[in-house]
Design a protein around this nucleic acid. Structure first.
Lengths: 108, 108
DNA sequence: GGCAACATGTAGCCAATCTACGCATCAAGC
DNA sequence: GCTTGATGCGTAGATTGGCTACATGTTGCC
């Protein structure tokens, strides 16, 4: 999968992962890897800035904790984030329809 | 639809549009608009550079003609472009599976 | 004469992802 | 005791492709 195919689609994916349970960065990476069937192996240089961006935007809230001597920053979805996720899912459907409408007007 | 959601997905879409018939730039814009149900209204500053990029990469070949006093540059798919299109379609399926695997592990 | 549609193109901006680092802890193996 | 790999967070800088804004010209209709 090409690198910047993700562009603009990563944010809702991150939000989706923390939708039902707050997770820390590393766990988010693992969750994305697992849910994508091993395809989505984000470099930390992508994930951490993305998380900070989402927090700055008010979609995530974070809290520090220490587990087994390791510091973790745990992120949870805010209500704004929840709305954002919903609209992100909707936008995904639109986007998918657009791409597929163009890619296979006759057949796949 | 957010602007840079397109990132990395535009190329196969352009190739798909000229797959069965060579078209000139303006006609490609119209075809994309139509096939996307009016969603994909590309600015010329996006399309023309993209066409040149695709030609430089060997996926498209172009030819000038004049129709009704207007100069047109008509693009057609090369065999390399055809292969690229096929792999682009495949990549799209992978990408779609990744996004949807993450976005709705429980439900949509 | 003026405006919309047709037709092509460039210059420069911007934002998000990437590569490549740096730092620290803990567990396992030698 | 030392090294290595997994865990864990983070920044700096490069890249890149789609965007806005601009520039140019023709045809046809009112």
């Amino acid at each position: 999968m090409k690198a910047d195919a993700l562009r603009g689609h990563l944010d809702p994916m991150i939000l989706a992962v923390v939708e039902h349970e707050p997770l820390h960065g590393y766990a988010i990476m693992e969750a994305l890897l697992e849910r994508s069937g091993g395809e989505l192996d984000l470099p930390t240089g992508t994930l951490y800035p993305a998380l900070r961006r989402l927090e700055r935007a008010g979609y995530l809230a974070s809290e520090w904790s220490t587990v087994g001597g390791r510091k973790r920053r745990t992120y949870q979805l805010t209500s704004a984030g929840s709305k954002m996720l919903a609209s992100g899912k909707q936008e995904w459907l639109t986007f998918r329809a657009v791409v597929e409408g163009v890619l296979r007007p006759r057949e796949a």
